[in-house]
Amino acid sequence: MPGQKLLEVSDSELTGDNTMGEVFFKRFTFNQLVEHWAMIGTFMLLVISGMPLKFPDAWWSPVIVNLLGGFEMRTLIHHTAGIGMVFLGVYHVVYHVFIDKESLLERNVWPTLKDVKDFWQTIQFYVGKAEHPKFGRYSWKEKFDYWGAFWGMVMLCVTGLVMMFPFVAMEYIPYAYVHLSTIIHTDEALLATLFIFIVHWWNVHYSPEVFPMSKAWITGNLSEEQMKHEHPLEYEEIMRQMDEKSEKITFNR
């Protein structure tokens, strides 16, 4: 990955000290971290303000609406956070397609055949019949998370805007399609919510491996230990590249 800072080495070069400091591997750029934080903020607001409408008869529905300050305030919160998420989605695509210099095809986020194999191997590992698969920069779980969110964002933003401006939409599409938007919007939102709260949070919060949480979402870094465990192929690749680039710095492998 040319042009990308792969790891941060603390202090060693500055002090001229030969002993190594702790090595961190760059997982997310600051830009990606801010995108993720904005995503967390808008997503949580949207779930809290939206679910009382998806389940209007549930006992907690009026409770949440009242906690948010009434129905009008709920709608205002949902619309504001929704517009924020639309901007986030547009920014994400524009930045990573046009501003990020890395070639689109070379990115590690595209699904590959290896991911399908890894998926199967992971299940076999869970039942004790195989070794744990070795992941590269992004595991199949992370790719699924990303593309799931990507698909969800497209669906939710488009249908959300249709529902926010129904009469503008009706100048171009039949009312039936506006109605269709409510089905797609709420069902897709329910899927996204369940996925984030159950699967994503298991992977990054609850799993004993990372409990109470993986700090990568705050620092953007992974420790060498985590790197060896979670992304061994990428780790080997980085080490090989570093060896080629510089014979001066030596690492305690």
């Binding site: 299940i123 869970y126 039942v127 799931g148 899927l191 369940l194 996925f195 159950i198 699967v199 799993s207």
Partner: peptide
């Protein structure tokens, strides 16, 4: 929704027991 959540929640459970 049933499929995706079913498969992935199943994997979370398998992960836990493994």
């Amino acid at each position: 929704t049933t499929g995706v959540i079913g498969i992935f929640a199943g994997m979370v459970i398998l992960d836990f027991f493994s």
